[in-house]
Structure formats: structure tokens, C-alpha cells
Design a protein around this nucleic acid. Structure first.
Lengths: 233, 233
DNA sequence: TAACAATAGTGTTTTTTTGACACATTTATT
DNA sequence: AATAAATGTGTCAAAAAAACACTATTGTTA
């Protein structure tokens, strides 16, 4: 057994960037702090790492505390550790990137935490280095969604191709050709036709698809090319 | 000023995965520990985060201590924080991913740290969760090198296209068509013909190129497609 | 010194993928 | 029944990728 010098110890926080999509806009789940420091200001949902949990567990705990959800898409994004990032104490923050289906989150829990779903482009200024974390996360979302079939995590269990297209248009803030998008998505054979239609439409009712989870898991790490020219030379 | 509960403090380590390429094989710079715990076993180069440094500074310090190099390619890869990952104490490790030119590293420094360049496929078992870190890093190298012009960081200032191809073949462990590879690389206009030839060749001497650093910096974040079918469906 | 082996450099052709576009269909509303 | 708004499917040309063949250079060897 070896002793490390206790002076080197720091606090480890976990902050979660939680994305949602309401059919038109990308949204972030943000909390208005009711604790010092920075009481009354907006921030990401976060907390300290507990002594008895792994990092991923901690992130899961924090997301669950706010949304009630488990088994969501949640991956580690970065660590922020600038020496003055938290004026309270030397703190290293592990940032997680989560995608959830807004309608599945527990409204009551969200409200009780003083949190809200806020349209990404209209987000307020955040505390500490949380603004930069969000910028990192948007970058990551664009990067990842261009290469991997990740968008489904933001849509309901069943969804239409036009809905999926609106999501991609929101992520990249560009118009996409309907016909080419449809062809590309269907060619992945990740989509299963449920035989049902989107009854909420007031015009022609679009086909509802669901994700082929077997194929999704098998092929998730393959490279696709959903946005051929996203940030291309 | 707010007090956080001191019981939550943990040690923050930094571990560096340092890749090199000798013209034939990918190599890792590993150290044989001469300190407890796990004295005599192989590990990544690492150390604790100092109170007065940012994370990236810490990584730079650790890489410099071992190789003498500054201004190398070094990016944050992940954080590992499983509760029992370090039997000595609760420790969170920030893992960095570095690419260096082997011939530029300080041999004497490397030796004095009990470190060696070891062929990736013949690496020994490593301490703690360092094996998993290396697996993560290989994944990341394959991912990143397929999309961004990162390979140059492992080659000398001037290099030939066949050398670059051998590097890519080592990274992905697949044969690549010489003619298609050459065409693809040249089409990026990242390469500048130095007018010189590789005099070490015993057969036809290949053209030496150097990287167009201006264009490299401008276009680094663009998506390329150096390995169209790497891990494709 | 001519043949050779090994490596490098540059084409061409075919196939696949992308991008741009046109037309027909469904459905609530007028 | 006409209309507007959205969905579904198809075509064609351009671009990119994959497969493949030939020529050139250089040290070694017969």
C-alpha cells in the first residue's frame, strides 16, 4: 500500500449536457441554480462524484435525478480542469453528453429541480466554463451525427423520415434535399417500416419507422456519411 | 466563497499514450516502473496533476519529461475513474493521446526513465486500466486518422508517399492500393514536393514531400476520407 | 554490361455514390 | 371538386472510388 501526497487531491464534478428535440428545435436541459455559488444563474446539471461510484454511474445518477430516465444515450465528452475554472476550489469536471427523448422525461422532476428545456440558440449565459462545454457538445453532436446513426436517440420510438430530416436540419442548420436524404437513410437498412402512419399530420400522413435495434448495435461503430459535406473543405 | 465537502476529493492523474512509427511498425512509448505500486511492471507514462497547472499543461509536462519534446500533437482522449482502478487510492486519470516522431525524442531521457519504444502488437500487459486505455487509443487513432490528416505527426519533416502509405497500412492493418492512395493524398493539396528524393532507397528513389502547414491548419477540422471503408458496414 | 528484381510514378476504365431535379399521391380545408 | 401542403418515388448527370496495367528508376547480379 502506497500513500500519495494528500495535497494533490481535487474535487471531481460531473456535468451533463442533455440534448432534446421537440420536432423543430434542438433544446438543452438547463437548471437555474438555487445554491451558492452563482445562485440564480443558469448552469448544466451536475454534481460531485461520489466516493462509491464510477464516473459513468455518477453521470447516470445525475441524469436520472433530473429526468427520471435510465438507459439513455450518454457518453463521456471531455474533462475540464483549468486551474481557475471553479472559483470555489480546484475542481476537475467530467462532462457527459446525453441525448434523450423530451417527452419521456419527467416534467415534474424537471420542474422541481428548477430546470427547463431551452432552445439551443436561445440559451442563456452559463456559469463557470459551461458555455464552452456546450460549444464542445454542439461540435461533438455535429461530428458524431454525421458519421453514426445517433439522431434516433432524440426521436420517439417510432418516427417518420421527415421528422428525422428536420432533426438533421436543426443540427447542421442547413436545408437538406428530401429525396436524397430519404434514399440515404433507407439504404442503411436501419429503419423498419411499422406499417403505421403519422396520424397527427394534417396533410399526407408519413410512414412511421422504428429503428432496427439489432442492426443498430451491430453497425453503430461503422462509418456512415449522413452529412457528406458537413464542414468539408 | 463556498466550502465543498473535503471527503469528496480524489487524486487526479494524467496518463499519456505516446505513439510512434518507425517506418514499419506502430510503437508505444512505455515505462517499466521503478516505483511502488507495481514496481517492475509496465505502464503508460503518467503523474499527478499539479495544483498550479491546467490539464493540458500537465500532459505537456509529462510528455516533455520523458521525451524532451514540446509542441507535439497531444489531445485529451478520455477520463478513467472506476472506483477501484487504482488500488492505492481513489484516483481519476485523464488520458492523453500523443503522436510524436520517434527520431526526435531524446533517447537518453527515455532510457533514464526506464522507458522503451515497444511495437504495438507486442506490448506487454500494463498496470491498472492502462490496457484498456491503449485499446481506446488505438480505436481513436483509427477513427481520427480516417477523417483528419493526422498521420503526418508520426513521420519526419519530409516523407514519401510510400512511407505514408505504410503508416496507414500499419494503423488499419490492411493493404492499400498504391495508386488510389497516392491520388487521394495528392488531391488534398496538403503535400508540397520538396524536389528531393529519398536517398536511402535501394531501388527507385521516392519523392520527398513536406506538409503544407498553412493549409493543414486551415483544413484540419474538415472531414477527409482517407480510409473510405475503414470499419464500414 | 545486360538482365533482373524491387520499388515508384502515372494512366484508364468501370462501378458506386452523390447532387439536382420532376412528377405523382395523400389528406384536411375551402 | 378544387386547392394547398406535405409525402413518396424516380431519373439523370456529375463526381468519387475501386480495380486494374503499364512505364520508369536504381542497385544487384549473372
Amino acid at each position: 500500500m502506497v500513500k500519495y501526497p494528500a495535497a494533490l487531491k481535487v474535487f471531481v464534478a460531473i456535468d451533463c449536457i442533455i440534448f432534446g428535440f421537440d420536432g423543430r428545435d434542438l433544446k438543452l436541459l438547463l437548471v437555474k441554480r438555487n445554491l451558492e455559488p452563482q445562485k440564480g444563474n443558469w448552469s448544466l446539471m451536475g454534481g460531485f462524484l461520489y466516493p462509491d461510484e464510477d464516473l459513468d454511474q455518477g453521470a447516470g445518477r445525475i441524469v436520472k435525478e433530473l429526468t427520471g430516465l435510465t438507459n439513455i444515450y450518454c457518453e463521456q465528452l471531455t474533462v475540464k480542469g483549468d486551474k481557475n475554472r471553479d472559483p470555489g476550489a480546484r475542481t476537475v469536471s467530467v462532462v457527459y453528453f446525453a441525448l434523450i427523448k423530451i417527452e419521456e422525461s419527467d416534467e415534474e422532476l424537471v420542474r422541481s429541480h428548477n430546470a427547463s428545456w431551452i432552445v439551443l440558440e436561445r440559451r442563456p449565459d452559463l456559469i463557470f466554463d459551461h458555455n464552452q462545454m456546450v460549444l464542445d457538445a454542439i461540435d461533438h453532436l455535429r461530428y458524431k451525427a454525421a458519421l453514426h446513426p445517433i439522431g434516433f436517440e432524440l426521436l420517439s420510438e417510432t418516427f417518420t423520415i421527415p421528422q428525422l430530416q428536420k432533426l438533421y436540419e436543426a443540427i447542421y442548420d442547413v436545408p437538406i434535399d428530401r429525396r436524397n436524404f430519404s434514399r440515404k437513410l433507407l439504404s442503411t437498412s436501419l429503419l423498419i417500416d411499422t406499417g403505421m402512419k403519422n396520424i397527427h399530420s394534417t396533410t399526407k400522413k408519413a410512414t412511421l419507422y422504428r429503428l432496427d435495434k439489432v442492426r443498430y448495435n451491430e453497425k453503430f461503430h461503422a462509418f456512415w456519411n449522413f452529412m457528406a459535406d458537413s464542414s468539408k473543405s
